[in-house]
C-alpha cells in the first residue's frame, strides 16, 4: 500500500485548482518546538507573537506557515500566536574584493559586484529561517 508523505496528505485542490502544499509543515514544527522551549525557559504563560526572519530565497509561503502554526499550536502556550514574518534580503559577497551586496532572486544568474564588476560571489544570506524574538505574557 502506498503511503502518502507529510507533504501530500493534505494536498488538496484549492479554488482555482491550484495545489495547496504541505511543504511548510516540517519548518513550522521546528518553529513551534523552539518557541515552546524558550517560553518554558522564560516562564511565560502565553506566547502572543513571534518575530521570524525568512530569507527571500525560500519557496515557502508565509500564509501557510501561519496556518500550520495555528493548527499545530492548539492546546499549547503558543496557541493563537501571530507570526510576524520579515523577508530578509539575499546578500552576496564578492569573491574578488569581498564587498557584500544585495541580489534579487530572479537575477541570481547575472550577479555583478557593484564595486569591481566581478561575477563570482558567495551567498551570505537569503536562505535562513531565523527566530529573532517573541512577545510573551
Amino acid at each position: 500500500m502506498a503511503r502518502a508523505g507529510a507533504c501530500d496528505q493534505i494536498v488538496n485542490k484549492g479554488d482555482e485548482g491550484k495545489d495547496i502544499s504541505m511543504h511548510e509543515l516540517p519548518i513550522t514544527e521546528s518553529i513551534l518546538k523552539i518557541v515552546l522551549k524558550h517560553a518554558k525557559m522564560n516562564s511565560a504563560r502565553k506566547v502572543m507573537a513571534i518575530h521570524l526572519q525568512v530569507g527571500k530565497l525560500s519557496d515557502l509561503e508565509d500564509d501557510w506557515i501561519q496556518r500550520y502554526f495555528d493548527y499545530l499550536s492548539k492546546g499549547t502556550l503558543a496557541e493563537g500566536a501571530m507570526l510576524k514574518i520579515e523577508r530578509t534580503p539575499i546578500m552576496v559577497q564578492c569573491n574578488a574584493c569581498s564587498t557584500s551586496y544585495k541580489a534579487e532572486m530572479a537575477r541570481m544568474g547575472d550577479l555583478v559586484c557593484p564595486a569591481c564588476g566581478e561575477k563570482d560571489g558567495t551567498l551570505l544570506s537569503g536562505r535562513e529561517y531565523y527566530i529573532k524574538e517573541m512577545e510573551v505574557q
Binding site: 518553529i31 524558550h38 504563560r45 531565523y130 527566530i131 524574538e133 505574557q137
Partner: peptide, 14 residues
C-alpha cells in the same frame, strides 16, 4: 492579564 514582555530567541530553525 500581565504585561507583554519581549524575549530574545535568536535561533536558526535549520
Amino acid at each position: 492579564m500581565g504585561d507583554i514582555r519581549l524575549i530574545e530567541v535568536k535561533e536558526e530553525i535549520l
